[in-house]
Each structure stands twice: as C-alpha cells, then as structure tokens.
Design a binder for these strands. Structure first.
Length: 152
DNA sequence: GCCAACGTTGGC
DNA sequence: GCCAACGTTGGC
C-alpha cells in the first residue's frame, strides 16, 4: 500500500466539495511524471492527503482513499473543457485519472508553514522549492505523523 | 500580482 | 538532440 499527497486548488475543487460528493474522479492531470505515477504506482486502497494549493494559506486539509485505479481522462477529449488536449483521443488516451473517496477532514488545516517546522517531514517533496508535481508519494512514517497532527 | 523554478514546444 | 522562448505552477 502506498501513500500520497494530492494537490487541488480549493477554488476549483476543495475538501468540502469532496466531503459532499464522497467519490470523485481526480481529473485534469496534464503532467507526464504524475501520469506515470498514477498509472504505474497508484493502487486501489492507497491513501492520500488532500492538499489545498494556490490559496492562503496552502496546506493539508484532510484524507481520502483511492477507490478506482487509473482510467482514461475524458476531459481531455472535450474541446469545451479547460483540460482539453487535442493530442489525446478515446482510441489513444494520453491522460488518465483515478477515483478518490472522502475519508476525513482535519479539524484544523496543517499549513505548509507548519509542515516545514517538523524535522520528521523534511523530505516531503512538496516542501522543495520549485516542485510542481500535483501528486507526490510519501512514506508510511510521514503519513502517520501528519495524520496524528490532523487528529489533534 | 509578482516571479522563481520548472516543463513543454518547436526551429534548426 | 540542443536550447531559446514560452507557458504553467504555486508560494508569497
């Protein structure tokens, strides 16, 4: 089983939206590294933190579970969609998505600033400057440490 | 809104 | 296949 941090801009899709919808396709991934990770490494049953990005303050706001493994992202086929990619087709899809299921919303957000303060979390990829991956793997120790922070 | 740090594109 | 120009992400 693997653990992840998945970013979303709350104005686009927030933890409250996921709490309301319960299960949601995580679409719009348009980065090859991230695509390869979700296709090759992400499995049903994996757990992930929901991270609010591009907002004030950014941080981890809850957790969720992967309930469907990678399948083709149809939003790439729709010219009207913001994530449209003419190079992707139903016959030869270039982009993929997974389904996630709401698990918990933290009582209080663990902000990026707070995450930076713990030596236990110093290796988190989201803390590195210039990291632009919307999904990053974390290890079990980091998962449990953050989950404890979120339960306090 | 600025801009650093990436990723992508396309001419050659 | 190199690399300059351009586009995007995302913290601040």
């Amino acid at each position: 089983m693997s653990y992840w941090i998945m970013k979303s801009e709350p104005e686009t899709y927030s933890i409250d939206d996921l709490k309301r919808d319960t299960v949601e396709p995580w679409n719009g991934i348009r980065n090859y590294q991230v695509r390869n990770m979700i296709c090759n490494d992400m499995k049903v049953g994996d757990l992930a933190f929901f991270y609010h990005s591009n907002c004030a303050p950014p941080g981890i706001v809850g957790s969720m579970q992967i309930v469907k493994s990678a399948y083709s992202d149809h939003t790439a086929f729709d010219p009207e969609n913001a994530y449209f990619d003419p190079k992707s087709s139903p016959e030869k899809p270039r982009w993929f998505m997974v389904d996630v299921k709401f698990h918990s919303k933290f009582k209080k957000m663990i902000s990026l600033e707070e995450l930076r303060q713990y030596p236990e979390l110093k290796d988190l990829l989201i803390l590195r400057t210039g990291n632009r991956l919307s999904i990053t793997p974390i290890d079990k120790r980091e998962w449990e440490f953050i989950l404890d922070l979120g339960s306090m």
